[in-house]
Amino acid sequence: MSQHVLLASPAAQITRELAFWILAIISVAAGLGMVLARKAVHCALMLAVVMLSIAVFYAMLGAPFLAFVQVIVYTGAVLMLFLFVLMIVGISAADSIIETIRGQRLWAALAGIGLLVLLSLVVGHAVIGPATPNTRAFGAGNVNSLAHLIFTRYVFAFEVTSALLITAALGAMVLAHRERLTAKPTQRAMARDRIASGRPTPLPGPGTYAQHNAVDMPALLPDGTPAEISVSPVISGVLQPPEQPAPGGDTASELPALEAADTEPEEARW
């Protein structure tokens, strides 16, 4: 019971209160930032902040096991999955600010305020008692007590959970699998295309001069004209606005598009 005495000391009380208010403000601000941020990556990082502060709240509420599960499963696994999918889908996929449904933001805000009022009334009417005295189940014996409950009273739900996880893994594999519509290009076919493209050699490297030694400087051809293809289209696209955006998103399909005009027709990748 020394832990109980520790928690009841005034200094620990003040620390607890301070931690709660600081983290409450941070988590609400990060939640608002998540809703308001335009870029999806910013939203994911804001969500990470919220989840980490919720993990600290779990620790304060006597759930050390759930606090660690929150950090490992949510911040570690789920958010990384979100970030991976963001990288696949495209990092520049910012939300458009044009409303497709008229007055959607206004009605959403009104609905949010209504929900807040409703839930506040419900919580205000409910009798929320004080926390019970600290027992071993909320401290050092948390994991043991949880394991005891999971494998006795909740054992059936636990078994069903395994079925759910297997189904989810299988579903994700089936959904993410893509059938190859065309035959895989062989080395022979790739070599033939390379010769037929008119440029069998690799692309020239960028220029290296006495005054300019950078990847954005085009190399000079023997007759003194700059070779535009020696600069990566990614870099020239950053430095100057691209004239015509390539239909494909990846640089591998943009490279032949920026070459000479007599290149082979760009294959449709999707």
Partner: peptide
């Protein structure tokens, strides 16, 4: 003194923020 009521209030606020986000945002990942 931080009581359970504080945590419940915080949970309500976070829930409402999430609900408004679902209504407002149009990027499916968000």
């Amino acid at each position: 003194m931080v009581t359970p009521a504080h945590f419940i209030a915080l949970a309500v606020i976070l829930f409402v923020i999430g609900a408004v986000g679902v209504l407002v945002r149009r990027n499916a990942i968000v």
